[in-house]
Write a protein that binds this DNA or RNA. Structure first.
Lengths: 207, 207
DNA sequence: TGTGTAAGCAAGTAACTACTTGCATTCCCT
DNA sequence: AGGGAATGCAAGTAGTTACTTGCTTACACA
């Protein structure tokens, strides 16, 4: 039963590196330290294995965003930071999955769960912010959430290839995007109603 | 000499559909209506052909952005619209290239020319805007340009897969992102210092 | 009229692909 | 002690891959 997990993990690694066509059963077996036949005995076919491996890979949780916004700057910065970290850790896998999605849509359908959930969470949060009267003006929540998530996504996908296109330093980028969005929504940073203690904690966490 | 171009175009089409490994000389030859041997006589190897095809694909111009901003809303909306159209037309090719870039960096290095140029253009424009005093506050041009370009890029790449995550209608999305960015920079649409005539024209174009 | 060049066609090469089969080994459970 | 399940190993199958070779056809140009 252990070899099964070894194979699944190896399949994920090799797929992230080489894509579906480059991800041969030979290479998976080598990466898993397992005989190639074992793969077929356990999963029947390469496609069945990859399908299961993809399902496993994309079943992960997401950082939460409070139902009732209290400190928009801190909350949105932290959420953005954890989201960009999630994407950066999986950038190779995501690139391969996006590339393969047109050819094998059913095999990688789980890949859209995380971004869909993230978008729903963020929209919900922004609407709550507006209901609280913390935003200065009318705005379309979907446009705003697509803007922040798009910036984070593009940064996670593109920085390795074109570092000079994205803001420096990389560790602050998510926060900078979040703050720029808050400015667009008219949420004023300076007028935050948090205590000094909270402000300090925010600084530590976002450093 | 004509067969050479047929082969190059076919190679681009097949690559955009199937990626490097799926882009076999057999399939390229079929798509080009040419005998497979002709490919090797003309280009020597599959890799040499693909290298040349990629170079050709990524040598395209970009919509300009004025050196001296006059009507930020109109200019930025139009630029965003042409940029998102550029990306949407090439989304398959871009996905494949991004996926292949880790494995064959030298083959697809030209792919970064357009986004790099776009980023430089946009930064330059935003800095000019700020110098004109049309922006309300201090801001980091690179963060702002990465934000708008990221939103546009993610929309172009992801809308087909998750249409409910992005603003509707698709044809207005680029403009909505551009306007949200202008809000973040404190550029006031209503308080524009253009003449009535220009304002009218803007309204028509942006409707 | 002759000559060079680009192309097609048929066949073949060596390597790799997913996948199968038969047999031997290990280990757990009763 | 014995039987069954999981695994390894060696070998093989049929198809595909990039690339080559030898020969033929068509056409432009001098």
């Amino acid at each position: 039963m252990n070899s099964r997990n070894e194979i699944l993990n190896a399949a994920c690694r090799v797929f992230a590196q080489l894509g579906f066509r480059g991800c041969t059963t030979r290479r998976i077996a080598d990466a898993a330290g397992v005989n190639e036949v074992t793969i077929f005995r356990q999963f029947g076919s390469k496609e069945a294995l990859l399908r299961e491996a993809m399902k496993l890979t994309h079943s992960v949780g997401l950082a939460p965003l409070p139902d009732v916004p209290a400190d928009p700057d801190r909350e949105l910065s932290q959420w953005s930071e954890s989201f960009i970290q999630h994407l950066r850790l999986r950038s190779s896998m995501i690139r391969k999955t996006m590339s393969e999605m047109e050819e094998r849509p059913d095999m990688s359908e789980h890949a859209s769960y995380v971004p869909k959930q993230a978008s729903a969470d963020l929209c919900h949060y922004l609407i709550a912010l507006r209901r609280q009267g913390k935003t200065a003006e009318k705005f379309d929540p979907k446009t705003a959430s697509a803007m922040l998530m798009g910036a984070i996504f593009a940064d996670a996908m593109g920085r390795g290839m074109m570092p000079d296109v994205y803001p420096q330093p990389a560790e602050k980028a998510a926060q900078m995007y979040a703050r720029l969005l808050l400015k667009a929504l008219g949420v004023e940073n300076g007028l935050r109603r948090t205590t000094n203690k909270q402000t300090k904690r925010t600084k530590q966490l976002s450093a």
